[in-house]
């Protein structure tokens, strides 16, 4: 029977792989907005990886980092949007 901790680690690895899949879009993205979208998605995947890694490593104290990752990456997108829209931040 598969150990549930190993399952959690596997899911964390898979989420990080999805983030790796997004790097070409950050590299290529013809406009700034494309890069922002890819970056936000990558940091959501990073937050999920943190959650599953915390569950696998059995430390609940890692979990807060996921909250910060989700909230600040998306709210960072708002700052980027302001930069795009106004020209001056």
């Amino acid at each position: 029977m598969i150990n549930i901790d190993q399952l959690y680690f596997a899911v964390a690895i898979a989420e990080a792989c999805v983030a790796l899949l997004l790097l070409p879009r950050i590299a290529r993205g013809p406009s700034v907005s494309d890069r922002i979208v890819a970056l936000n998605t990558a940091s959501t995947q990073a937050a999920l990886a943190v959650l599953f890694y915390a569950a696998g490593a059995d430390r609940a104290i890692y979990l807060d980092v996921a909250i910060w990752l989700v909230s600040f990456s998306y709210l960072g997108a708002i700052v980027w949007a302001r930069f795009l829209e106004r020209g001056l931040i």
Binding site: L23, L39, A42, A46, V50, Y53, G76
Partner: peptide, 16 residues
Amino acid sequence: MALSAVGTFLSLLFVI
């Protein structure tokens, strides 16, 4: 933006 990605992934690595 790429620098921001470096920071985000660094924080993931710090957790690990």
